[in-house]
Design a protein around this nucleic acid. Structure first.
Length: 306
DNA sequence: AGCCAGGCTCTCG
DNA sequence: CGAGAGCATGGC
């Protein structure tokens, strides 16, 4: 079955999806030329789907195909997930208007026209990915995550490619620290991941219930768990739930981006960053994504190499 | 060779 | 409380 994905322009999918290859391959989110493949949860099972795009950012044509599906609700689930991955429901137009008041953002929205954050539809996957990324460089974080997925996740075939399903909490709840240590996880990361999986399988943590809770309530619930701090919780709000009024100001790359664009490369406190971000109100999440992408843009042109 | 990576916990003062 | 050590590995 197949459907077209209706997203308010602009949407530059090549740029939006580039994060799935910038730091290495991602066996769960498989990016090809003009095509993205992933598996969506429907009831108790998983269905692989393909998202294809053509056209310019101001008039993108996007299709979602679920090979072998025969029931409409399976296609509907894939379409709904694809919309999240594209960041379709974020208020890009509102952000672009607000950005005009800020010279830095005003410039970046021109150079990154159509960029949207990719919202991660599976909360457990998002949190484990964040634990992988704590403290280490992102290339290494991606390799850790990929190894975890290949070892504990199941796989299916979509359009001639293998797509992995991120390991379920029930699987990782039974994993051993020693197994993860052998895969180059630190003992801490291994404990955090297994502990998180167990708090989900035991029922003490209900990630699905977060949808209608406030940012502060969610931060409080997540940081009560061992291994999840404010950084992880704020990225979860931003990239997992798509909350607009969030700025992960403690993030090293975010801090460097703020220092680069707003303080001539000189140091800025986390407080100062939060203060500035707060003025962007509901557009903080998008602003942060544009600053990070802008920083990568600057590095790519200046560095020449990496 | 040594320092840094898109943190977090634990321990001290 | 706030500061500081320890974690563990890969890349430059």
């Amino acid at each position: 079955m197949e459907a077209t994905l209706d997203v308010p322009p602009p949407l530059d999918l090549a740029r939006t999806f580039s994060r799935f290859r910038t730091w290495g391959a991602d066996p769960v989110n498989r990016l090809g030329e003009g095509v993205f493949r992933r598996a969506v949860r429907v009831g108790g099972g998983w269905h692989g789907y393909e998202l294809r795009w053509t056209g310019e950012p101001d008039a993108p044509r996007i299709s979602v195909r679920v090979p072998g599906a025969r029931r409409p609700f399976v296609l509907a689930a894939a379409v709904a997930e694809a919309r999240r991955i594209c960041g379709a429901d974020l208020d890009l137009a509102g952000f672009y208007i607000a950005a005009k008041a800020d010279p830095v953002l005003g410039d970046l929205v021109g150079r990154l026209h159509g960029l949207r954050p990719t919202l991660m539809p599976e909360p457990f996957e998002m949190l484990v990915g964040s634990i992988c990324a704590q403290q280490v460089n992102l290339t290494f974080a991606f390799s850790l995550r990929a190894a975890l997925v290949r070892r504990f996740g199941s796989s299916l075939r979509v359009g001639g490619e293998t797509v992995y399903v991120f390991p379920e909490p029930a699987i990782l709840a039974r994993a051993r620290v020693s197994q993860l240590r052998a895969m180059k996880f630190s003992g801490r990361k291994a404990e955090y991941i297994i502990g998180l999986a167990r708090s989900i399988t035991s029922g003490s943590l209900d990630l699905a219930a977060f949808a209608d809770r406030s940012n502060e309530e969610i931060i409080e619930s997540l940081t009560a768990l061992r291994g999840l701090g404010r950084w992880t919780a704020e990225w979860f709000l931003a990239r997992g739930l798509g909350r607009g009024d969030v700025c992960p100001a403690g993030d090293l790359a975010v801090r460097k981006a703020f220092e680069h664009f707003y303080n001539r490369g000189r140091g800025l406190s986390e407080r100062a960053i939060r203060r500035r971000a707060k003025a962007w109100g509901p557009h903080q999440n998008l602003a942060v994504h544009y600053l990070l992408a802008g920083q990568r843009l600057a590095r790519a042109t200046a560095g020449g190499g990496t």
